[in-house]
Amino acid sequence: MGNSLAAGSAPTPLGRTHHPCLTWKIHDFSAMPMGQDWPINCAPFVFSGYRWFLSLTPLHRTIPFLSVPYVALSLGIARGRGCLGLEPGVVMAVEYEFSIYNHSDHQYYGCKATHNFDVMHFYTKKECLIPLKKLLKSPDFLAEDCCVFGVDILKMDVIFPEEMAIVVEKSAAAVQNLFIQKLPYIKWTYGVTIGNFLEQFTERFVTSKFELDGQKWYFGIYPCGNRYSNNCLSLFLHLDGSDKAPNEYGKLVELTLSILDEKQGKHFTRKTQGLVVFADKCQWGWSEFIPLTTLFDPSRGYLVGSSCTLKAEIVVVGSYS
């Protein structure tokens, strides 16, 4: 899906691009965690009636462990009804441009690509922009430890269930500022015990809200899984930002969710492969968090009677404004 780089191929030379529909300014760029080939997401932005995500990988290799690490971008679209997302069964072809800003000549440079989006392919492949080593030494692209990336969505066509062009908006461009935190990072932890878990074995339920950093949060649980899972429990952490303007409250975090083992202490844990953003009304988690056979295994301590304990750990790496 799409025309992104084949493994090991040479990146396309950068060319001058359009002014982006989203400008993403990353301050204190050199303080960004770069130890893994993991993506870092921008806060969600709305364009032409859909909710999008721009994702940055500062240490991407076209051949794992062998090739020169590149700074790369990918583009994602939200899934599901009611959240400005792509609905199941729809396939949409999108033409877009990724870019990086040259502070010296005040121009954006990048590359053009295409991708067919559906609910199972909601992120493009990574497009290499510039070698990380070159970027970190370049006053053109890294000025006062600030690097600016962009994406412009040029064309959108629904190719299934019927061919239909979508009018691409040319409204004012969105601008996001991400400020990377210096070490040590702030860490939040919260746990909740659901005493009547089996009695709530419905399509979906949520826990009571709790407060962290002056904001309300809650867990969303699909005991039998949501539409994207197969015989697994789905678990998400939600930020209730309904009383905030979009991007008024935004944190770049590493998220860990756990179901605690009350018998042996061998907790079932999943951690994000990269950094994600909580902003506005937002959720992050896993559709296939834990297989139901594992959850109900009597030799484990995930369910004690009808009681189940969930825990969230949030490491704050940056903030948005």
Rank of each mutant, 00 (worst) to 15 (best):
E127G: 13
P69I: 10
R61T: 13
S138Q: 13
I221K: 03
A7E: 09
C146P: 03
H103K: 05
F210I: 02
C282L: 06
S48L: 08
L233R: 02
A312N: 08
P11K: 10
D140A: 14
K281G: 03
F219N: 03
D213K: 13
I194S: 03
Y109C: 00
L260I: 03
H267T: 04
P298V: 13
C21F: 04
F122G: 03
P64L: 02
I159R: 04
N177I: 03
N177K: 14
K311H: 13
R16F: 06
M92C: 13
L292S: 07
G89Y: 07
V315M: 03
F197K: 12
R81K: 15
V304C: 11
K170S: 12
Q176A: 05
K209Q: 15
G214Y: 05
G195R: 08
V119K: 05
P88Q: 10
I314L: 15
T269I: 14
G225A: 02
D297C: 15
V316R: 01
P184T: 01
K137G: 01
G305S: 10
C282S: 15
E203K: 13
L84P: 01
G220E: 05
F219V: 14
Y320K: 04
P11H: 06
N196M: 06
M34V: 11
S306R: 13
L183P: 06
K281P: 00
V119A: 00
L5E: 12
K263V: 12
D297T: 02
W38T: 09
L75W: 11
I153E: 10
R81T: 05
Y218F: 14
H121D: 09
S306Q: 15
A172L: 12
T124Y: 08
V168Y: 10
W284R: 08
P13C: 09
F296V: 08
K251A: 01
A93M: 10
F179G: 05
D297I: 00
N230W: 00
Y190K: 15
G285E: 06
F268Y: 15
L84I: 00
P64M: 06
Y185F: 15
V277H: 00
K125V: 06
S321L: 07
F160P: 01
Q36P: 04
N116H: 10
D240V: 02
L73K: 12
I259Q: 07
R79A: 07
I221H: 03
S321P: 00
Y222A: 07
S234R: 02
K187P: 01
E203T: 14
K170C: 10
L178N: 12
C128S: 14
L198P: 01
Y70E: 07
F296C: 12
K271M: 09
G150K: 02
D28T: 09
T293E: 11
R51N: 14
L237F: 09
D157R: 14
